[in-house]
């Protein structure tokens, strides 16, 4: 056996490998496959009944509410949980021990979670359309689709932070479970943030999905006022806050990795 000489690990390959692994594990494990297809159907039906008769755009409300609930779980929660699974399986140590930076491994999983989240959103759309007997009225369908995907990206950016938390501590699952609904409501997944007490708004604006969801409602529901500064500024805000999250991600992972190597808790689960 000759020793490895010169190859350097490719970050893109690490992300690609992680994406491929996420797909394989998703397909191989019914604990992911079943909830990610059945839960959106339930969310869609509940949301349809919840918003039925609430004005001419109730279908859009229903789709956004249920779609976000489904995608939030898949994209945000799933991104953190994938690292939690690594901890549980004992694969976190060999993965961190590999030369590829762990952030790029996490990115691969997040890409898959975004795709799976969009799949959930599509199921919700189909369920609501079938229940209502027709599609919702959308003033600008193309912009709706673009912003819909963008919401996923913002959710993914928060997912990176959750993933870092799972590397940091085995108790991240506990924190994520406790914060799940506060985050879900606080960022306006089910209903607009402006309906919440004013003091919650500045906190909510620290999270990219809050901005992106407000923009999405602006372009989907005529007459929606939201924060009052229009969807374009929402978009600027979402891009800016997401960029901050992305910029911080590398530094956060470096610090988190150093912390776990100092404390020696990588193998704890």
């Amino acid at each position: 056996m000759t020793a490895l000489a010169s190859h350097e690990t490719s970050r893109t390959r690490a992300t690609g490998a992680s994406l491929r692994l996420a797909i394989l594990l998703f397909v191989a494990d019914p604990q992911w496959l079943v909830p990610s297809t059945i839960a959106p159907i339930v969310f869609g039906l509940v949301s349809f009944e919840l918003f039925r008769g609430e004005g001419p755009y109730f279908l859009t409300y229903a789709i956004l509410g249920a779609g976000m609930m489904s995608m939030w779980g898949q994209t945000l929660y799933g991104s953190g949980w994938a690292t939690g699974q690594d901890r549980f399986l004992g694969t976190l140590e060999p993965t961190i021990q590999a030369p590829a930076p762990y952030l790029y491994v996490v990115l691969g999983r997040i890409i898959w979670n975004v795709v799976a989240g969009l799949f959930g959103g599509l199921i919700v759309y189909l369920v609501v359309v079938l229940a209502a007997g027709g599609p919702p009225q959308l003033p600008n369908p193309l912009l709706f689709v673009v912003l819909f995907v963008f919401v996923m990206v913002t959710l993914a950016s928060v997912g990176v932070v959750f993933a870092a938390a799972f590397v940091y501590s085995r108790y991240a699952g506990f924190i994520q479970n406790v914060g799940e609904f506060a985050f879900y409501i606080g960022t306006g997944c089910m209903f607009p943030v402006v309906l919440l007490p004013f003091w919650t708004n500045p906190i909510a604006l620290l999270f990219p999905p809050t901005w992106a969801l407000d923009a999405l409602r602006y372009v989907s529901i005529p007459g929606y006022t939201g924060f009052g500064w229009g969807w374009e500024w929402d978009l600027v805000g979402a891009v800016a806050v997401t960029a901050v999250y992305a910029a911080l991600a590398g530094s956060v992972f470096t610090r988190v990795e150093r912390h776990v190597l100092e404390t020696g808790q990588l193998s704890d689960y």
């Binding site: 190859h7 350097e8 690990t9 490719s10 390959r13 690490a14 690609g16 490998a17 992680s18 491929r20 692994l21 394989l24 594990l25 191989a28 494990d29 399986l89 004992g90 694969t91 140590e93 060999p94 993965t95 590999a98 030369p99 590829a100 491994v105």
Partner: peptide, 23 residues
């Protein structure tokens, strides 16, 4: 522990081969 139990050995190795940058 330390292996992905739901997939086969070849896929486990392929994942780590990519993380190690094997061409």
């Amino acid at each position: 522990r330390g292996l992905y139990n739901r997939i086969n050995a070849r896929e486990n190795l392929r994942y780590f081969a990519d993380l190690y940058g094997i061409p």
